[in-house]
Simulated assay, not measured.
Amino acid sequence: MPQIKVGLIGGGGIAGAHIRGYAEHADRIGITAVADAVEATAVARGDELGATAYVDYREMLASADIDAVDICLPHHLHRDAIIAAAEAGKHILCEKPLCLTADEAADVRKAVQENGVTLMCAHNQLFLPAVAKAKELLEAGTIGTVYEVRTTDSFFNDFDPSSMGWRASSRTSGGGELIDTGYHPTYLMLHLAGGSPVEATAMLSTHRLKFMEGEDSAQVLIRFDNGAVGQLVTSWAYQPAPGTERFSAVGELGSLTSDGSSLTYKLRSGETETFDLEPVDTFVAEIGHFADSLLGRTRPIHTEEEGIAVLGILLAAYEGSRTKTIAPVLQIP
């Protein structure tokens, strides 16, 4: 048996990527129970993993011998599953977004803190080697005080009305593309900017996926309390133009930029260096980090605190777009 026994909540979609991670770290952490509201999915995943299958995750929480849960549910179901797991004393790995509203975020924070469990946000792109190297350089002051951070996550998505499912509804997705794929460049920006977000605005568009209720593309501006300003582009409608960076930062001494694989910094002094980094499976790295955090009793790279900060950026961006203003990022108690 693994050292950490996990109950998987939601066996479809992104769960497959998480399962790869558990397979690579089977000596330390593994799925021993799985719950899915679709019985056929629960049974199939249970057979695949040698795990006990449930159709109700609350029953799993009450009866399964597990230490933690991995929540891979549609967005609108995250809050209730987090609270149920926390109240059952289980540690939590939760897919993005953490939840959908300020009230839900307050409920999540309260449940996690009152029950003394660890919650890790499944922000897999933080485990890109280029992101880790960029964070190292920024914290070392290589480019000095950071003035600007830019992040991009855009691709041509072939969703259609028959395949989009719950993502087509703003009620269940929480908005549109921005709170879904756009969550990735938002948490990446938070990670690199080195401050707390204070205000944001956005221009939202639906260029191509006109059957969905929310936007399929967004451009977002964010100000942080350390003075850094973030620019974010994200879309399901199109591939970015050739040469568009995955992320970049500009500071008083120079800049750094990355296509997601390599990383280059260039200083005004003329010093420059390029790092060609070995690719990793970010989901495998994410699961390994979750195991390390629980076994070592250390803080995960992103907890509910960062999850709430990312949600605050997105809610302010949506509000700024709606009111055509720059909206404050709510401080969620």
Rank of each mutant, 00 (worst) to 15 (best):
Q3F: 08
L8W: 06
I14C: 06
R20Y: 01
A23W: 04
G30Q: 03
I31P: 00
A37Q: 06
V38C: 04
V43G: 01
Y54L: 08
D56N: 15
Y57V: 06
M60P: 00
A62G: 08
S63H: 12
P74C: 10
H76F: 15
I83L: 09
K96W: 02
T101L: 12
A102C: 08
D107A: 15
D107K: 15
A122P: 02
F127N: 05
L138N: 03
E139C: 04
T145E: 11
V146R: 06
V146C: 04
R150Y: 11
F156S: 11
D158V: 14
D160G: 11
S162D: 15
S163G: 14
M164N: 11
W166Y: 13
R167L: 14
S170A: 14
R171S: 13
G175D: 03
T181C: 14
Y183G: 03
Y183A: 12
P185I: 08
T186N: 07
T186Q: 01
H191S: 10
G194V: 04
G195M: 05
P197D: 08
E199M: 11
A202V: 10
L204Q: 03
L204C: 04
S205A: 14
S205G: 11
L209C: 04
L209A: 00
K210Q: 12
F211L: 09
I222N: 02
F224N: 01
P240H: 09
F247C: 09
V250I: 15
G251L: 06
S255I: 07
L263P: 03
L263A: 08
R268N: 08
F283D: 02
E286S: 15
F290V: 07
L294C: 05
E305D: 13
E319N: 06
G320E: 00
